[in-house]
Design a binder for these strands. Structure first.
Lengths: 236, 236
DNA sequence: TTCAAAACATGACAAAAGTCATGTTTAAGC
DNA sequence: GCTTAAACATGACTTTTGTCATGTTTTGAA
């Protein structure tokens, strides 16, 4: 399932300056580099599963990942989208709990695994890493609280517009400068927004009718960014 | 507005062993004690306001506080309920942003203020405090992600039942062993649940009709805890 | 390349929840 | 302890959103 490839080197990792490890001292980075190993995942593969025990953290080298929570009736809610340089599984490791989310590869991905022991050793040696992690958790928490508020107060159309802007922020555009650089199914989009798949499909069609976006299969192009922002009705 | 009283002493604070500062060494606790000052707030007063710049953190000595976010149309979403020993404002301070929430006293409260400089000094000296804060942020984040999922997937009746259980967990019962030990307005309850006030009122009446709770003015008594849990339809 | 399964799309309908209106009760301040 | 505004309660109605059914298109595996 998971294929071991030539491991990249943390010192020269293309995601180094995007990650929470960016300020690590050479000695600590060396430790991480020695104990980590890198895995390749195929599209659709699970990196870790809700309920399982964490044994370390994951650092994304390439690819795209969705993190989602499965609710009572088995319905999925996408809580986060991850890309190069993002770390996964730190929340559960820090609070010493089993994973509360499942991580799925949205496309082929290369992801390094850093064992728990190394992570906590480095954490004890580098106060700056603690600070970075606290900042990361703090902003994650702020966004989560904003999302709760929006789920309670905004209609689906506004949340859908916002989700498209969020996807744009996370993965950017392809070379044409307007097509979202990720292939999400309509169901995935519905599970980001927190609505039924049919509703998401209908409202996407509406946005297309309104000339705000374009749809070509799974390709979504934002053709009127300002009107999309207006539609999202963002809070300050 | 804010009255200065005889300051309590951190060493002998009744909330010491409930707070994130519980493991602080004597030297650090001494620093905190010297620089903190304690304020009394009347019911309804604001401790800090969304958008304002944090100058330190707050540590609750007594009373009850709601933390809420004001959405685009001015509607309030209650994000957290705080009690003795809880700290407030740490998220914004850690990520160096303005407050994303407003804190209101639900009843008369006594709350200590610890200046930013002291907080960060102590944080730099005590690695354990970082760890405690990371754990706190991690569990807050987990709960926020669960709430997002529930907002997306559960009907209001289930969320209301869950909110009542949450209030019970936070503030407990009065002496009679079944009346929730806090006076929340129907609007506050609706703003915890994320629904319209009228809907919350209607569904509370339903739960009363069903013999699960009792309502006497603002007093809410849980008379059938198991059925309330069933109604909440909790995820594992 | 073909073909079956999955994903997408859309209509019709049902259910859930919000809004508005109105009357009653409660509680806070004088 | 009055008085009056706020909170609570409830009915009627509307809107939003979800569900089910059905047909079409796409996609991935043989």
């Amino acid at each position: 399932m998971v294929t071991k490839h030539e491991d990249p080197d943390c010192q020269h990792c293309n995601s180094r300056y995007r990650s929470v490890f960016c300020d690590l001292h050479d000695a600590q980075l060396h430790d991480v580099n020695l104990s980590k190993h890198c895995n390749h995942y195929k599209k659709g593969q699970i990196i870790f599963h809700q309920g399982m025990r964490p044994a370390g953290i994951f650092c994304m080298n390439s690819g795209k990942v969705k993190l989602s929570k499965t609710g009572g009736e088995g319905k999925e809610q996408i809580v986060r989208l991850a890309r190069l340089g993002d770390i996964l599984g730190y929340r559960s490791l820090l609070s010493n709990e089993n994973y509360s989310l499942t991580a799925y590869a949205l496309e082929d991905a290369s992801i390094c695994f850093i064992p728990k022991s190394t992570f906590f050793t480095v954490l004890a040696q580098d106060a700056n890493l603690s600070m970075q992690l606290m900042k990361l958790l703090s902003t994650d928490l702020k966004h989560a609280e904003e999302k709760i508020t929006e789920m309670a107060q905004k209609p689906v159309r506004e949340r859908l517009a916002e989700a498209l802007l969020f996807i744009k922020e996370t993965y950017g555009f392809t070379e044409d400068g307007q097509t979202l650089n990720v292939a999400l199914s309509r169901e995935d989009i519905a599970n980001v927004v927190g609505t039924a798949t049919e509703t998401a499909i209908r409202l996407l069609s509406e946005l297309k009718q309104d000339g705000i976006i374009n749809l070509t299969g799974r390709k979504i192009a934002i053709i009127d960014n300002q009107r999309l922002i207006n539609t999202a009705n963002l809070i300050d």
